[in-house]
Design a protein around this nucleic acid. Structure first.
Length: 725
RNA sequence: GCGCGAUUAGCUCAGUUGGUAGAGCAAUCCGUUUACACCGGAAAGGUCGCAGGUUCGAGUCCUGCAUCGCGCACCA
């Protein structure tokens, strides 16, 4: 065979390192990631159906991990597929300032490197440092996304804390404030004594620990014994609650007692409450309204006083020298010893209990009464015909306007919304959107801009980061301005993210969109699973098994990593990323390379203007491929990429290469229907490259540039998908 | 406590609407160096967690159980 006309590079194995960055630049410079350019250049019809995805913005807390890599791969597949279908396709990038996460990361760095605290630097200087860190992280992340081959429209990039998004946040806040959905109130909140801020229920991580359950009486003449793992809070008790129908205690209900508990005078009323279980412990519950959510609710029902005994630093606020100023853990021991000494202790038993800790700082949460901002999820909204935010969040999923893939997460979503409590949106941190509320004496002003006149001070708190991310599908498109982009691309087609983020983010986007726009934010939610190591363990710093996706790319190429992450991994399923699997697909890239070489070398003399007829055998082969393409197109539309990739892999290797190409060798050598054999080769190859492009964009684009279809036509990225259903 | 998922070849996992099991990796044997050794061919390997049920027929549907994992709640 004449090798002269074979492109030089095909004579060596496929080299992703030489190819990938070059091709990404070619795509980016040609502007095809931008749907406007695609229309301008005639790749997309001006009236084409829009398809949009907003990138779940990675936190600017460092670098991308394998979870991000998976997200980029799946969304890039969706985007490239839509683009090849001729849709007006936008995949919009951005990053998230991630308030608490970023701030605490920078705090840790400053403390480690300079031994300073944020208060040593002051708000302004500290924020400068955070912004510098955020900028660096952003640059890293953007570079990494490019390495993944992500066809994101960088010209539209957004940041949750930039000028436009801040304006959207203030606009949304004011609307909710004016309608009474945002309120300020004293409530028991999750206080993080280390981070010195409130956190939401979702930022709590439960850790199982061993604890001691103490059973005792407040004093010798107190009639009922109670149990607790936290005796130090008992100096703040104002009642004992028992079950209504508990005969043991019925005679005491309504009575009041005075006692001196470890030197602190307390006044206890006995009440009957429905939340008390007779069988648990002694069947009596010491009520500490200031330091327990449940107790606060009991206190409210019975009009009991609230007595705060623990401060923001988790230290005792009451008692004599033995208690005052002590940490809660120390005070616990002091009180336990006092109970033993006084002969009040009835029982001490080891129990295991779930301790609430803060996700970011690891500190044990101290429930405290605090003045905070909340979003009321149960208030009927006049502008939405009396529906509550909860209703607005439930409806689109119930009605099927929003589909969740895989389906089982719909129930998880419903369950979560149904149990939703008011959302605490204020945080005592510096980095983030400052609450757009100003005070002057008794006056309060809420506005998109600061009020006119002197003497106003802005609220010190900032907003929960999820407030701004809730607006993400439309703040990125220019809202509150009604832009062309907003009109074209909202609601977005798909929201693709990890299932662990469902309550945090997905629910909040639905809340914001349905309330502010009267529209859904996306039509489909696609959840991907966790990426674990090859042994199925969660990747974690302490295990030292974290894999950097960029290292894998350097070693095996982006296409190989992408395939390894997709093949056989259904939506919502966790996957194990082993290097063997990646190697297998880097071999596959090379196999495609050699397939193309063989086809080019063996079909050079064929007359493309005047193609010969196919013999029966090859005609059947052609029909089989069309059937396969039809099948996988259906699966693409159902997001079953794990099946499509497996089938394409198998077809390319074990049908096209092992059967069809092997057969053609014999036919060409024996001059038996050799023209038919050549024609089937040049028919199959371009179709395969098109179908594989969303998954393996680099090697397919490179090969496309070497075959006549690509040499004489457009880039593969803007070519047509090989099958229309 | 409530809910969800998993249990298939040595390992990691596929298996669309029920028709006597598949892939990758590993291991065995044979072959090939003019598309590709990042190759080809062959053989081997499974009572599809357990027990019932529906059915002509169940990995697939139903019930119960076991083990593992996850989420939510409780945690006096």
């Amino acid at each position: 065979m004449d090798i002269k006309n074979t492109p030089e590079k095909l004579l060596k194995p496929y080299n992703p390192q030489e190819t990938e960055n070059r091709l990404y630049s070619t795509w980016e410079e040609s502007g095809v990631f931008n749907p406007d350019v695609c229309i301008e250049k005639g790749y997309t019809a001006p009236d084409a159906e829009p398809f949009s995805i907003v990138l779940p913005p990675p936190n600017v807390t460092g670098t991308l991990h394998t979870g991000h890599a998976l997200m980029l791969v799946i969304e890039d597949i969706m985007t490239r597929y839509a683009r090849m279908q001729g849709k007006r396709t936008l995949w919009l990038p951005g990053t998230d300032h991630a308030a608490i996460a970023t701030q605490s990361k920078v705090e840790k760095i400053i403390e480690k490197e300079e031994g300073k605290r944020k208060t040593d630097l002051g708000r302004e200087e500290f924020l400068k440092r955070v912004e510098k860190f955020a900028q660096d992280s952003h640059d890293t992340i953007v570079g990494q996304a490019r390495r993944m081959g992500a066809s994101l429209d960088w010209s539209r990039e957004a940041f949750t804390l930039d000028e436009k998004r801040s304006f959207a946040v203030r606009t949304a806040f004011k609307k909710m404030f004016d309608e009474g959905l945002i309120y300020r109130g004293h409530r028991i909140v999750n206080w993080d004594p280390k981070g010195q801020t409130v956190i939401s229920d979702d930022e709590i991580v439960y850790e199982e620990r061993k604890a001691k359950l103490y059973t005792f009486k407040y004093s010798k003449d107190f009639p009922i014994a109670i149990s607790t793992t936290r005796p130090e809070t008992k100096v703040g008790d104002t009642a004992v609650a028992v079950a209504k129908d508990d005969e043991r205690y019925a005679q005491y209900i309504g009575k009041e007692y005075d006692a001196v508990f470890c030197g602190v005078p307390i006044h206890i009323k006995i009440v009957a409450d429905e939340s008390v279980e007779k069988e648990f412990g002694t069947g009596a519950l010491g009520v500490t309204p200031a330091h327990s959510q449940i107790d606060a609710e009991i206190a409210q029902r019975h009009n009991l006083p609230t007595k705060q005994v623990i401060n923001e630093y988790a230290k005792m606020m009451v008692g004599g020298e033995n208690l005052l100023g002590k940490k809660t853990t120390e005070a616990r021991e002091v009180i336990a010893q006092w109970l033993r000494d006084e002969g009040l202790m009835e029982k001490e038993e080891e129990v295991s209990q779930n301790v609430s800790t803060a996700e970011r700082t690891g500190a044990i949460i101290e429930p405290l009464p605090k003045l905070q901002w909340f979003i009321n999820v149960n208030k009927p909204i006049a502008s939405h015909s009396g529906k509550t935010l909860k209703d607005l969040m439930l409806e689109p999923v119930k009605d099927g306007k929003i589909k969740i893939v895989p389906e089982q997460f719909e129930r998880v979503y419903m369950h979560w919304i149904t149990n939703l409590r008011d959302w605490c949106i204020s945080r005592q941190i510096w980095y983030g959107h400052r609450i757009p509320v100003w005070y002057k004496g008794e006056e309060i002003f809420c506005g998109v801009e600061a009020p006119e006149g002197d003497g106003w001070t802005q609220d010190e708190d900032s907003l929960d980061t999820w407030f701004s991310s809730g607006l993400w599908t439309f703040s990125t498109l220019g809202w509150p301005e009604i832009t062309e982009d907003f009109k074209t691309y909202h609601p977005t087609a798909v929201l693709e993210t990890g299932y662990d983020i469902l309550p945090f983010w997905v629910a909040r986007m639905i809340l914001m969109s349905t309330y502010l726009l009267n529209d859904i934010p996306f039509k489909t939610v696609y959840f991907h699973g966790l990426v674990r190591d090859e042994k199925g363990r969660k990747m974690s710093k302490s295990l030292g098994n974290i894999v950097d996706p960029i290292t894998l790319i350097d070693k095996h190429g982006t296409d190989a990593l992408r395939m390894a992450m997709i093949v056989g991994v259904g939506p919502g399923n966790d996957s194990n990323l082993g290097e063997d699997k990646i190697k297998a697909y880097s071999k596959f890239a090379n196999k495609l390379w050699n397939i193309t070489r063989f086809v080019l070398e063996n079909t050079q003399e064929i007359d493309r203007e005047n193609l010969p007829a196919l013999d029966t055998e090859d005609q059947q082969t052609a029909d089989e491929l069309d059937a396969l393409l039809k099948e996988i197109t259906g699966e693409m539309n159902e997001y079953k990429f794990y099946l499509v990739t497996e089938k394409l892999y198998h077809y390319s290797w074990h049908t096209f290469a092992d059967v069809i190409i092997e057969r053609s060798k014999a036919k060409i050598a024996e001059k038996r229907n050799s023209e038919s054999a050549q024609r089937i080769l040049i028919e199959i190859l371009p179709k395969l490259l098109r179908a594989l492009h969303p998954f393996m964009p680099f090697v397919t684009e490179e090969l496309w540039s070497l075959i006549p279809e690509g040499k004489n036509g457009r880039m593969l990225i803007v070519e047509k998908w090989p099958c229309s259903l």
